[in-house]
Computed example of a mutant assay.
Amino acid sequence: MDGMEDTTTEDMQPSPQPSGTPEGRRQRGAFSWNSWLIPLLILLLCIGFVLTNLFQAQNARMLTVQTQNAQLQLAREQQQETILQNYLNKISDLLVHDQLLAKRKASDPAKIAADALTRQAFSRLDPDRKAALMRFIYQTKLVSNDSVVLNLQDVDISNAHLGQIDIRDTYLVGANMSGADLHGAILSDTILTFTNLSGANLAKADLHASDMHNTNLAGANLAGANLRDVTGLTSDQLAKVRSLSGATMPDGTVHR
């Protein structure tokens, strides 16, 4: 009986499957899959971790740059306001305490100081604040044809945002207003002799009865502008203008 039990037990043990059989191939495939699946998962986790850190670092750098740019912009705005306010305060002081409007001689210390301050301020201000400064000197009559105080010869008013501004009856001789936005501006009876208006936008501007002897109009937009009774305007100047469409010419005709 013992011999029969031993034989039966051995017969019941599973015999190894030859490697070439389907069962052998499945076992070998399962082992091969397990051998590279875990390292692959680990690799993918590492890549994900690295990419996450890179994205976070990039976002942090972008946020830092944006913060720095915002701070720089705020600092520039504050600097611009300081320049403008300092000018307004100093000129106001000259107007009140030194009777600046009564100064006519070029050698007068108050006038020399005012000219220097004006030249410096315009050269340092942005287009919007140049407009604010221009309104101030107009309102205080420092550039009025009746009381010319400031000398704007070669003063940098270029690219100023002066759309719709009313600075009629002013003395702007020799000023550099190239590239300025003067659309719809009122410049009637203004002295613009030797003024640089090259590339300026004067669309629908009112230049009625202004003096434009030797005014630089190269590339200027005069579409719809009122040039009626303008003096000193030559065909050579008009030939260099970018557009005269719909402009009222000095003789009252409308340019087509």
Rank of each mutant, 00 (worst) to 15 (best):
L95T: 01
L95I: 12
V96P: 02
V96D: 08
H97D: 07
D98Q: 13
D98F: 10
Q99T: 04
Q99Y: 12
Q99L: 02
L100T: 04
L100I: 05
L101N: 05
L101Y: 02
L101K: 04
A102V: 07
A102Y: 09
A102S: 14
K103F: 13
K103D: 06
K103C: 14
R104V: 14
R104L: 11
K105E: 11
K105C: 04
K105L: 13
K105S: 15
A106Q: 09
A106N: 11
A106C: 01
A106Y: 06
S107M: 09
S107Q: 12
S107F: 07
S107P: 03
S107V: 12
S107D: 15
S107K: 06
D108Y: 02
D108G: 04
P109C: 08
A110V: 05
A110R: 00
A110G: 04
K111N: 09
I112R: 14
I112G: 04
A113Q: 15
A113Y: 06
A113D: 13
A114N: 02
A114T: 06
D115F: 01
D115L: 04
A116N: 05
A116V: 08
A116H: 01
A116G: 03
L117R: 02
T118A: 13
R119Q: 11
Q120P: 01
Q120G: 00
Q120H: 02
A121M: 12
A121W: 11
A121N: 09
A121S: 15
F122P: 02
F122V: 09
F122L: 12
S123N: 05
R124N: 12
R124D: 11
R124E: 11
L125C: 10
L125N: 00
L125R: 02
L125E: 07
L125K: 05
D126I: 10
D126H: 03
D126P: 08
D126L: 06
P127C: 14
R129Q: 13
R129W: 03
R129A: 05
K130T: 08
K130N: 00
A131M: 09
A131K: 06
A132T: 15
A132M: 14
A132L: 15
A132Q: 15
A132D: 12
L133M: 13
L133C: 07
M134D: 00
M134R: 00
M134W: 04
M134Q: 01
R135I: 14
R135Q: 15
F136L: 08
F136V: 10
I137V: 15
I137N: 08
I137Q: 11
I137F: 10
Y138K: 14
Y138M: 08
Q139I: 07
Q139V: 06
Q139Y: 03
T140S: 13
T140N: 09
K141I: 06
K141A: 13
K141G: 01
S144G: 11
S144N: 11
N145C: 12
N145G: 13
N145T: 14
N145S: 14
N145F: 04
D146L: 12
D146Y: 10
D146N: 14
D146T: 15
S147K: 00
V148D: 06
V149Y: 11
L150Y: 04
L150T: 04
L150N: 03
L150D: 03
N151G: 08
L152W: 05
L152M: 08
Q153A: 11
Q153I: 03
Q153P: 01
D154F: 04
D154C: 00
D154T: 09
D154N: 11
D154G: 00
D154R: 09
V155N: 03
V155A: 14
V155C: 08
D156W: 06
D156M: 10
D156A: 15
I157C: 14
I157P: 00
